[in-house]
């Protein structure tokens, strides 16, 4: 059981604790030709009562589809979620660590970090990954949450150096981000309801999957649909697959009738 003297104590930061105990894997330099699964398109947008976060389910290694059911959007605590693009292995590790940091802080201190504090903490994890990013293992997260202090949804995207950018309206990341981002840009309004936001996000992922081979579309055959979730004052709500299936059906019908 880890007990420290007051001057050695790592405080409530789980990452510091893990470092102190030497449990962090050493940074090895990766070969750029190493082919590992990459995760792709994720979007987030604000709506009138909160924020929506969504991502497709495909992971690719070069021209291979390596996973069809990957969960790139993860709830990190009651009021926040992360979506990732980039090298899947380090990315999943980063989200796992991030969620643990939030929970550990909450248990140690008896209260949650502020949303801004959470976004800042994620920025440090991205920056720590910089050596790996230099040799091709880039991980770029997107962070969305409901700020209980300001009573509004907020979202951030990051660059490989840990740069943290708060977005006012929407953001799209990953290989299909140009298409997905354009769809949202055209359809975004200040007064979007949660339902409008869900439909807009589905539409954006549909268009991205049409144009980008690394983005997976709705897969009715296997029953695999993108992950779409909203976060508002009552917390995280993941949209049911049955509801997504209806939305994608209506998009398909509309495309057919063009």
């Amino acid at each position: 059981m880890p007990i420290f003297s007051p001057s050695e104590d790592p405080g409530s930061n789980f990452n510091e604790l893990v470092k102190k105990l030497g449990l962090v894997p050493s940074h090895t330099s990766w070969s750029e030709s190493l082919s590992v699964p990459h995760a792709t398109t994720c979007v987030a947008l604000r709506f009138n009562e909160g924020v929506l976060i969504a991502g497709d389910r495909r992971a690719t290694s070069g021209n291979w589809i390596s996973h069809r059911g990957m969960e790139k959007v993860l709830q990190t605590d009651d009021f926040s979620a992360v979506a990732i693009s980039g090298a899947a292995g380090p990315a999943m590790e980063m989200i796992k660590m991030f969620a643990l940091i939030l929970e550990h802080y909450e248990k140690m201190e008896g209260r949650s970090l502020s949303l801004e504090g959470k976004a800042n903490q994620l920025s440090m994890l991205v920056r720590n990954n910089l050596p790996a990013a230099m040799s091709g293992m880039v991980v770029l997260p997107l962070f969305a949450g409901f700020d209980e202090h300001d009573s509004q949804g907020r979202l951030w995207d990051y660059d490989a150096t840990g740069g943290r950018y708060e977005e006012r309206e929407y953001v799209a990341i990953g290989s299909g981000s140009m298409h997905a981002g354009t769809v949202i840009k055209v359809g975004w309004r200040n007064s979007l309801t949660a339902q409008d936001a869900v439909e807009l996000a589905c539409r954006s992922l549909w268009e991205a999957s049409e144009a980008d081979s690394a983005t997976g579309g709705p897969d009715g055959l296997r029953g695999v649909y993108p992950i779409v979730a909203t976060i508002d004052k009552s917390g995280w709500h993941r949209i049911e697959d049955s509801e997504l299936s209806e939305i994608f059906d209506s998009i398909a019908n509309e495309v057919k009738s063009r």
Binding site: P2, L23, L100, E103, H104, M108
Partner: peptide
């Protein structure tokens, strides 16, 4: 205890 539990879980 919180530390030990979180580390085991990790």
């Amino acid at each position: 205890g919180v530390r030990a539990a979180d580390l085991t879980g990790l």
